[in-house]
Simulated scan of single mutants.
Amino acid sequence: MSVNPPDRTFSGQVAIVTGAGSGIGRATAVAFAEAGAHVLGVGRRAEPLKETAAAHAGIDILAIDVCADGAPAEVVAAAVERWGRLDHLVNNAGATAVMPLAETDRKTITGLLALNVVAPSLLAHEALPHLRRSSGSIINLSSTYGHRPMAGGAHYSATKAAVEQLTRSWALELAGEGVRVNAVAPGPTRTDVMLHAGLTPEAADDMYAYERDRIPTHHIASPDEVAHWILRLADPAGRHATGQVITVDGGLELV
């Protein structure tokens, strides 16, 4: 798994990647490591994280629920204790939910907010003193549906809209301190997120087929294709870009 970075752009730097056990998170962790970074891959499940770590010697892992009390501080401390610095925080961990208004329940709403909005906010808070010292960056993961309506997924869309506003507001707040904040908003990407949302493999395949027909390029992205843009936004050579939301969806937001 690789996005084929052209050189060791991130040599000696340290990145935290949440949701690193699979999909975009795993691809991002591997891509950072291949580009020279020390990577702390974070996720709830130990076994998938071990598979991520096996992909590159530059990846260490921490199995933890980022929504748990004290978890954000523990995550940041683990990276800094291992490598003495922190340069990039990638807030990738997230969840989706297929939940029409008629079926809305409190538990699902609060769970989405906790993982998609609260946890990234607290991780960024804990990381900030270290990112100030390194003139580092925060990369948040949004979605095409953070700025495009999604029938049956309003609360998921709302959490991603919140992520985009956090990105812009933090970027404005921290620009004078040398900390950049950007976001990548993927469209449909071939990961296991739909299975975790409760869809059967058959239903997930049907959804991907439906989305492929709607996407102008008729292509469902791979995790590597999204990871490419995460690394480009983190690249120190792009230090003049902050507060940006880069949509990677084959043109779906245009239709």
Rank of each mutant, 00 (worst) to 15 (best):
A119R: 01
T110M: 09
A71N: 07
I24G: 02
I59F: 10
E164H: 04
G41E: 12
R190A: 15
A102H: 13
A15R: 01
T104R: 04
A37V: 04
L233I: 06
S137L: 09
G146Y: 06
S121D: 01
G187R: 05
L86I: 01
V163I: 14
P6F: 14
V248H: 06
A162R: 13
V245Y: 04
L141K: 08
L141T: 10
A93P: 01
R8S: 11
Y208E: 03
D60Q: 14
E164F: 03
A127P: 00
Y210A: 14
H125L: 14
V226Q: 05
R232W: 12
E211F: 15
L166Q: 09
P100T: 09
Q13C: 09
A93V: 03
W229Q: 05
P129C: 12
T242F: 10
L101G: 02
G198I: 04
A154E: 07
V181I: 06
G12W: 08
A20C: 03
G152T: 09
V66E: 15
H125A: 15
T108L: 12
R45K: 14
V14D: 06
D105W: 09
R180Y: 12
T96C: 11
I215Y: 03
A221M: 05
G198A: 08
L199Q: 12
A185P: 08
M1V: 14
G58T: 00
L89T: 02
Q13I: 08
A162F: 13
A175T: 10
A227W: 10
I16D: 11
P149D: 10
P188K: 00
D249Y: 03
E164P: 05
E51Y: 06
G94V: 04
G12N: 02
E202A: 13
Y208M: 11
N140C: 10
A55R: 05
A29V: 05
V118I: 15
